[in-house]
């Protein structure tokens, strides 16, 4: 637009667009750049694939064929291991839920007004979250040997990272005014938190703990795979036996599938009731 134009009173010939022309152009460019990126990376991954994508369906049929029919009679051998996996998740979630409370309070900006402590706790939790659960399990198996204990420890550390973060964020959104009233009526720090804060976050707290429990049931299966006990370990050993044991492995997978579904159903119903 030339200078002489801008000085004239603006004459609107048509209604203005919602976005300025410049923004529109930018968005269009970004959109096509992203599409181009997708196309390029699709092309790249295809190039590295072993064999042809057209072979995949046939391969799938032949592999799955070896797994079917599942050997359901094998279930009688693995009830104990399945129960162990669930127990692992229960114990780990419970302990994590307890340890979370002080950590979440210390990493909530509105409760921990002493900045260095707040930053220290938050950094610690961030570090905790960067370690994948599988790595934790490998480390603890290395430390304590094969068994349930390393699995439980790995799950505790893993769920602590998620739980403390989510709960501290919940704490940061509470209404601070009742806490002020509790303080003004002579309550000590613990009393103020217990009577003013806890009722406000208890429903979300329970809901998040149940959610982490769901995650832990699934994670404990995977952890068993690296020697942390439970059903995952059985699955791994069956798969190692080769083709003969595949129907057993399939029976395990079906059982895990059912158990995880049931637990998720119960937990989501409970969470619905809470919020």
């Amino acid at each position: 637009m030339s200078k002489s134009n801008t000085k004239k009173p603006l004459k609107i010939k048509q209604p203005p667009d919602i976005y300025p022309t410049k923004t529109k152009a930018q968005v269009t460019i970004i959109f096509f750049a992203i599409v181009a990126m997708y196309l390029y990376s699709m092309n790249w991954t295809q190039r590295d694939m072993v064999g042809d994508i057209t072979d995949a369906p046939a391969n799938m049929v032949s592999v799955l064929g070896k797994f079917f029919p599942p050997n359901y009679s094998y279930w009688s051998n693995i009830w104990d291991e399945m129960a162990l996996t669930i127990q692992m998740a229960v114990i780990a979630t419970t302990i994590a839920a307890i340890i979370t409370v002080p950590l979440a309070l210390l990493s909530a900006r509105n409760i921990t007004t002493f900045k260095p402590l707040y930053y220290a706790t938050r950094t610690f939790l961030n570090l905790l979250r960067t370690i994948p659960d599988l790595v934790l399990a490998v480390i603890f198996v290395g430390l304590f040997g094969i068994g349930l204990l390393p699995g439980i420890l790995a799950l505790i550390v893993f769920s602590l990272g998620i739980l403390a973060k989510l709960i501290s964020e919940t704490i940061e959104t509470v209404d601070m005014s009742p806490l002020e009233a509790m303080r003004a009526s002579g309550g000590g720090t613990i009393q103020v938190i217990w009577t003013g804060l806890v009722p406000q976050v208890l429903p979300q707290f329970t809901s998040l703990v149940l959610y982490v429990f769901e995650i832990n049931v699934r994670a404990s299966v995977v952890l068993g795979y690296v020697g942390a006990g439970g059903i995952g370990q059985v699955l791994q050993s069956q798969l190692r036996y080769g083709h003969i044991a595949f129907p057993n492995a399939m029976a395990i997978i079906v059982l895990i599938f059912i158990v995880v579904l049931v637990i998720e159903y119960i937990s989501s119903k409970l969470r619905e009731a809470l919020i």
């Binding site: 209404d175 005014s177 009742p178 002020e180 009233a181 509790m182 303080r183 003004a184 009526s185 002579g186 309550g187 000590g188 009393q191 103020v192 009577t195 003013g196 009722p199 406000q200 208890l202 429903p203």
Partner: peptide
Amino acid sequence: RTKTGMIFQNYNLVKRSNVLKNVLAGRLG
């Protein structure tokens, strides 16, 4: 603070708790 009671513009009650529990909070000190 135990001998000075306070009343606030926004009432400052714990909204999820029942009335009796809120009133008993006055005994905290």
